[in-house]
């Protein structure tokens, strides 16, 4: 197996003022090009974990390596943050410049990309998220979904290998959520960018390679979406909720209908019902 792009090895972390660890003995590996999701209720430690990955926080125990570099070694900090970019929750609080194009340039300016190279990289990044026509707009005139896509472009322009999304859809409306989700899926599929998707929306985790459920600072359940959502009762214990179709599948099975395991979406449920009822 090739070396994972992000490797979290028995990591614990406690905020200075608090005795309790926000993240406890977490291990996690992301192979290159994979799409993993972390689910958890508010306060489960999932955002803290995200910030541990690109060195915004440093583990109190254990090690985090990104592309083979230890985040605890401060010579690696900037290279790690370039390679593993991050998109945050609040679309308003991560755009720095008054013009979209200049915001995308912000990261490039920070890592000292020559001025001559910038326009092409900005153009590509904005095109990849479908925001090229908004290059000259002021961020506060954009919708939430558009702002988040600008934030993604800002990370993308730095040519990262992985992007961590820290609840990047939590404050968006369904349309904005769909826009952002589609853009991210496409980046993962077409450019092989490794994605770590942190959320509490179950629907968003349905299509990823692996789901990790965090509860009380620990990863309590890991597996493919099918495995993880197979038992809605267990998911509920972690104050989460299985997707509606997974819940329905369980109820149908209890009523004696032989619905196949791993039904998560309306499309899959349709197939099963057609198979059994026609």
């Amino acid at each position: 197996m090739p070396t994972p792009i992000i490797s979290v090895d028995h990591v614990s972390f406690a905020y200075e003022e608090e005795a309790r660890e926000a993240v406890r003995d977490v291990s996690l590996q992301l192979p290159r090009g994979s799409f993993h999701a972390i689910l958890g209720q508010n306060g489960s430690g999932k955002s803290t974990l995200a910030k541990l990955i690109n060195g915004l926080y440093l583990p109190t125990k254990g090690t985090v390596t990104v592309c083979g570099m230890d985040t605890a070694d401060d010579r690696n900090t900037w290279e790690i943050r370039r390679r593993a970019g991050m998109v945050f929750q609040n679309p308003d609080n991560q755009l720095v410049a008054t013009v979209v194009e200049e915001d995308v340039a912000f990261g490039l300016e920070n890592i000292g990309v020559p001025t001559a190279e910038m326009p092409a990289r900005i153009e590509k990044a904005l095109r990849d998220v479908g925001m090229l026509e908004y290059a000259q707009r002021a961020p506060h005139t954009l919708s939430g979904g558009q702002k988040q896509r600008v934030a993604i472009a800002g990370v993308l322009a730095m040519q990262p290998e992985a992007i961590i999304f820290d609840e990047s859809t939590a404050m968006l409306d369904p349309r904005g959520r769909k826009e952002v989700m589609e853009a991210v899926k496409q980046l993962n599929r077409e450019q092989g960018i490794t994605v770590l998707w942190i959320t509490h929306f179950m629907e968003e985790a349905v299509h990823c390679d692996r789901v990790h459920i965090m509860h009380d600072g620990q990863i309590v359940l890991s597996g493919t979406p099918r495995d993880v959502f197979a038992d809605p009762e267990q998911i509920r214990k972690y104050r989460l909720d299985a997707p509606p179709m997974a819940r329905l599948a369980v109820q149908l099975r209890e009523a004696g209908m032989p619905i196949r395991d791993g039904v998560l979406t309306a499309e899959e449920m349709t197939k099963e019902v057609l198979r059994l009822c026609r």
Partner: peptide, 24 residues
């Protein structure tokens, strides 16, 4: 499949599908 037009909650779906299944 004759899934009722006015079913939109999970409990309604459950009984509608079971009816379809038993009918089938």
């Amino acid at each position: 499949l004759p899934f009722p037009q006015d079913a939109f909650r999970e409990d309604q779906a459950l009984s509608a599908i079971l009816t379809l299944w038993k009918g089938g």
